[in-house]
Amino acid sequence: MEETRALVQIKGLRDGLLASLDDASWEEQRAALLAQVDDNPAFFHGARLALEVASQILHVNELVELRDQLSERNIFLWAVVGESPTTEQTAQLLGLATRISKPRPEEIRQVRVEDLGEETALFLNRTLRSGTRVEFSGHVIVLGDVNPGAEIVAEGNVLVWGKLRGAVHAGSNGDRTAVVCALDLSPTRLQIADETTTLSLDPQRTSNPETARINEHGKLQLEIWSPDR
């Protein structure tokens, strides 16, 4: 039994606990994690838990089952960080965060979109359906739609080659130079840095590619893209 316990490392984060698993079988890991919790329920009770799963490939079934089992024990699973794209997609589908480092307030203002460089874009070649949450520390590019009930939070820009009808937050670390563009920009909620707008768009309006940015007066503004410029 002691041996299995070593499969799971628990440590404290600023705002909760982090459980790190290694590449042993998922069943063993899950059992080891739950055994640790059941050994010391008072320590875990009410905790926010983030999970680091190395290269483990997890599907919806597996994550939902674990999330249910944790929630029965009063533990709130909020993030799953892993190397596998499948695992990341599963976590996003369940609305879980996929990274856990949050910049400290004093760091926030220093990062600008330009500083993110060209390497730090997340490319999603699919439609983000309701309940999906994508959070990324760079730019986010979607080749597909973002449906109502889906959410994108990006420290950089957000570009959607499709219809953007969910919620979007660009420049989430406070960068007011970030932009959001989409072939059809009709989000349920749009935020850049700390400027928010809920657009009430005329449903009859023709859908054109548009860019949203914060203008020189500090207000969120939409610009229709036209090929003549």
């Binding site: 589908l93 359906r129 309701s130 309940g131 009930g149």
Partner: peptide, 8 residues
């Protein structure tokens, strides 16, 4: 909305 989630 819920159908969309299930389809995902």
């Amino acid at each position: 909305r819920d159908a969309d989630r299930v389809i995902g």
